[in-house]
Amino acid sequence: MTELVLDTQVLVNFQHHDFTGHGPHGHRWVDVKSFRFPQGIQDRELLAALVAHEQFRDDYAGGGVDPAGTRHGPYWLKHVTAHAYRPVANTDALRTLRGWASRHGSIPESLEETLASTVHASIDSATSCYHLQDLGHQKFHDWGGVHSDFHEYIAIDQDRALLTLLVAADD
């Protein structure tokens, strides 16, 4: 199996920015995990390696990564496979994330700069981008409906041998 090596992790927490005059922060955040991989690995193999990776076992509800975990985001882990991801145009991924970020109104300039340098830059430089499709409520784990919004993208930059997992949600 392809080995992915965790390179960086950044949590962009909207609450850490001054929303005065911008509407509510909406308890939103984006978790950005970047992984290095050997050159020449096809996207589907990379997606499968990510799903099998320990860092993927994260419920994104405050518990962090659980090496023995059975949850990923709102879903039981067993339902999230490489085939659950669909190719998406980089521009469409950016449009969705920008719309989600500004759904309560404008966002502070400091947050826009942070999103641009982390989230948007990862998608902009990607040679391919994938979106976790909605697997349906029947695939939710026991408390899987806790997020009102949950967006997950995988940006793969084959030129730099970098895969970035982006999860945007709310508390």
Rank of each mutant, 00 (worst) to 15 (best):
D43G: 08
E112T: 14
H120K: 07
F56W: 11
L162H: 02
S117W: 11
A126L: 01
P108F: 02
Q55D: 15
H83L: 12
H72E: 01
H72M: 08
V146T: 11
W100T: 09
E54I: 12
Y153T: 04
G40H: 01
T70V: 15
P24L: 01
I41P: 00
G64L: 04
L163R: 01
G73I: 11
R160W: 02
V10I: 14
H72W: 03
G105Q: 10
H17E: 02
H131F: 12
S34C: 09
H151M: 09
L115N: 10
A84Q: 03
Q138A: 13
G145D: 13
H83D: 15
H79Q: 09
F14D: 08
A155T: 02
R36S: 14
V119K: 12
D59I: 04
E45C: 03
L135H: 02
L6G: 05
V51Q: 03
T127E: 00
I41H: 00
P38H: 06
Y130I: 06
G64A: 06
T2Y: 06
L163P: 06
Y60C: 09
W143S: 14
H72G: 05
E113W: 08
A116S: 15
L47K: 00
R36A: 13
Y85M: 04
H27M: 12
H16M: 04
A52N: 12
C129R: 04
Q138E: 15
E54L: 10
A121G: 05
L132P: 01
S128P: 00
K139N: 14
A101L: 06
H53A: 10
Q39T: 09
V12K: 03
Q9E: 14
F35H: 08
Y75R: 05
G69V: 12
L115V: 12
Q42Y: 00
K139C: 15
E3H: 10
G69A: 12
L50W: 06
Q42A: 06
T2E: 09
D43F: 05
L162C: 11
Q133K: 08
D142S: 14
G23K: 03
G144K: 05
H147L: 05
H131P: 00
L50F: 06
L162M: 10
G63A: 11
L115G: 10
G26V: 03
H131G: 05
A116T: 14
R103F: 05
L162E: 04
R86F: 07
Q42N: 07
T20G: 05
R98F: 05
G73K: 13
T96D: 14
F150K: 08
V51Y: 01
L50E: 01
V30G: 02
C129M: 08
A61N: 14
L50Y: 02
G69P: 13
R160N: 13
A168W: 08
H120A: 11
L115I: 08
G26M: 07
V10R: 09
M1Q: 10
C129V: 09
R98M: 07
K33E: 11
I123Q: 04
A155H: 03
V51P: 02
E113H: 12
S125R: 14
F14C: 00
I156Q: 01
H104N: 15
P108R: 05
A168P: 08
V10G: 00
L163G: 03
F140T: 04
K139H: 15
T118N: 12
S34G: 03
K78V: 13
A89L: 13
H83Q: 15
G63C: 07
L132N: 03
